[in-house]
Design a protein around this nucleic acid. Structure first.
Lengths: 130, 130
DNA sequence: CTGTATCCTTTCAGATACTG
DNA sequence: CAGTATCTGAAAGGATACAG
């Protein structure tokens, strides 16, 4: 009859905060993978940039300052396979490819925008108070 | 009065979406650093875990499944220096250290919780439709 | 214009061992 | 209990060249 101080499952705290079944956001959970995609360095910025409107490859590259071609391509492929971004290639010369948010992508971006607004508003304060 | 297709600054798209001055979230912008901290692999989970209540080191380690001691320490130091997490060490034997959210940290976590809820709700769908 | 392929450097991250 | 220090392999990321 052991009354341990740790009766609950490993990550119960996070699951509890989110009102979800225990086991969510454990290491093996698929949520972890998706979370890493959407919170990736470039993923966040791409999703937010596409909030305004459909953008072409070149426009995206300029919108997301500092991204390399390699990382932009990789990020877009990931987000597309996650069903968050729609890629539409037109077989014209010169080629033209449009990127836009899917419905789920737009929903997600809706959560990211206020987050980035908060970050922008507090970046100065946090960098000066240490 | 030039009405070119590209009159605005490099990353104007993102600044426009966020209703902020052009230049926000450029590569050199301090917002980028803070954004990377709060959207880091372990940072997000630590902040959400601390939403429920103050947690001790050992509790945090169990709450954030899969994190190594090294990464937990590194993440906590970063979040503390950003003014998001408060660290309170008690000089007792054995040592006890409490971690909690500061007011800004709590505000930020308020944006992260709905994001993680959305991710949890869509993880299955996005992983099966490719 | 829209990418892909390759190389190379830097950073991330886990394992292990050790300290107060 | 709550960390730090060091080592090493894996992964991210950038630069360049090139292709459709």
């Amino acid at each position: 009859m052991k009354v341990s101080t740790q009766v609950t499952s490993p990550n119960s705290v996070i699951a509890q905060v989110l009102d979800l079944g225990s086991g969510t956001f454990t290491q093996q959970c698929p949520t972890r993978t998706l979370l890493d995609h959407v919170t990736s360095k470039w993923g966040v910025l791409v999703l937010v940039a596409l909030t305004s409107r459909t953008l072409r490859w070149g426009e995206l590259r300029r919108a997301v300052d500092g991204v390399s071609e390699k990382m932009l391509a990789q990020t877009l492929r990931t987000l597309e396979s996650d069903g968050l971004v729609l890629r539409e290639a037109r077989p014209t010369i010169p080629p033209r490819v449009d990127y836009s948010l899917t419905d789920p992508g737009r929903e997600l971006a809706g959560h990211l925008v206020p987050l980035l607004r908060w970050v922008a508003a507090h970046a100065d304060a946090t960098s000066t108070d240490h």
